[in-house]
Design a binder for these strands. Structure first.
Lengths: 201, 201
DNA sequence: TGTACATCAGTGAACGCGCGTTCACTGATGTAC
DNA sequence: TGTACATCAGTGAACGCGCGTTCACTGATGTAC
């Protein structure tokens, strides 16, 4: 397909894939331009032709992480019957990703991407992941005392509530603070911990 | 008080304090043996007499972080009247710490301390911080449908629920994902986001 | 169809940097007698 | 009270390492004519 000499031909995606592999095998500390390039078998200055320095490469890797995060959650959601089970599926999917791809999860939510507005691809990918939660939250009615809010604010509040909850659980698991699956299943079922949502169907 | 020559006299706490200062001023990346020692004005090999390498020093700094985290939350709690306001005070205290001491928060929950059982001081300090939440959770009744649990499990579940929630909010703020205090107050009051607890008084 | 040339993609040596650790040392302190 | 000596705490030079970036380069590809 490609001559194996000199020009790689598909270096950009190959570098991102190498980054994913290193995250799985060596963790976040192993991610350097030199290590990534070496894994592809290319000079460590080659990535400069495709990415804006190490930061740009990390940003692209994180974006791919968000896309996979979204895709895995989305698949779990669609495999579940509508209603409460879809809520659970989304939560479990979010948390499962954080446990199984710990280093990637940490990269994705690393404060090094603070000015995310300037990194369009990353922002888009992150939004797609949040969008899955948003889709789930749409079907929820969260009953609570207190003043009435506009439908928009009400929806935003429900999304954020869901995100806070699921991200908290995922973070604690990821940080080794929460024993997850000590003997194959969570200490407490996510379902049990979930606050009282009113869900359709 | 101490001769300023050669022997520092109080090097151990001075190094920890220097670590706290660097976290505030330069962030987690600035924390190295050389930087910490330099800030105290001591040779960069001196810390070896008091700590087991960089990891041991970081562990001691994180432990101090947990102690301050616990103390600040505890103070906020005690300043509030019993009941719902104490729950809010604890939550706000937890989140405020994560926002105001971002780098320290990240160090405290860094997965580099995964085998925390082997670091007694750190484990004790972390427990003291969790203990404040536990004290709050004791006063809560969390009504929910589902099977009855033993009082011990019920208490554990409530504590974890509270922790998951507050840690999620704190993490998102810390990671720059959640706009906190855009114009002086949170986008949504923690109180509003809080699930329906039944609280005494 | 062939030639000239611009552009693109990857090379590899070199640079300077900060890091943690080691090592033989030395100055200060404390204790035994 | 004084002396000898062990122990403790800090020094500073040296080591090797991996890092991101720069630079002049070169091999391959594509395009104009």
């Amino acid at each position: 397909m490609h001559k194996k000499n000199y020009h790689h031909g598909d270096l950009k995606p190959a570098l991102i894939q190498a980054g994913l592999d290193i995250l799985e095998e060596e963790g976040l500390e192993g991610l350097s331009m030199r290590a990534i390039a070496a894994r592809v078998g290319v000079s460590h200055t080659a990535p400069k032709n495709h990415f804006d320095g190490l930061h740009g490469l990390l940003s692209a890797i994180a974006a791919e992480g968000f896309r996979r995060h979204a895709a895995e959650m989305q698949k779990d959601v669609e495999d579940a019957p509508p209603g409460r089970e879809r809520l659970d599926a989304a939560c479990v999917g979010y948390i499962k990703f954080a446990r199984e791809h710990g280093a990637m999860f940490r990269l994705m939510f690393s404060p090094r991407f603070n000015k995310k507005a300037e990194e369009e691809e990353l922002a888009t990918a992150a939004a797609s992941s949040y969008g899955v939660l948003r889709g789930i939250a749409e079907g929820l009615n969260w009953q609570r005392p207190g003043p009435e809010l506009s439908p928009e604010l009400e929806a935003m509040r429900t999304e954020l509530m869901l995100w806070v909850f699921v991200h908290g659980y995922a973070s604690l698991v990821n940080e080794g603070q929460m024993p997850a699956d000590p003997d194959g299943k969570p200490l407490f079922d996510v379902l049990e911990l979930m606050p009282q949502f009113d869900y359709g169907n």
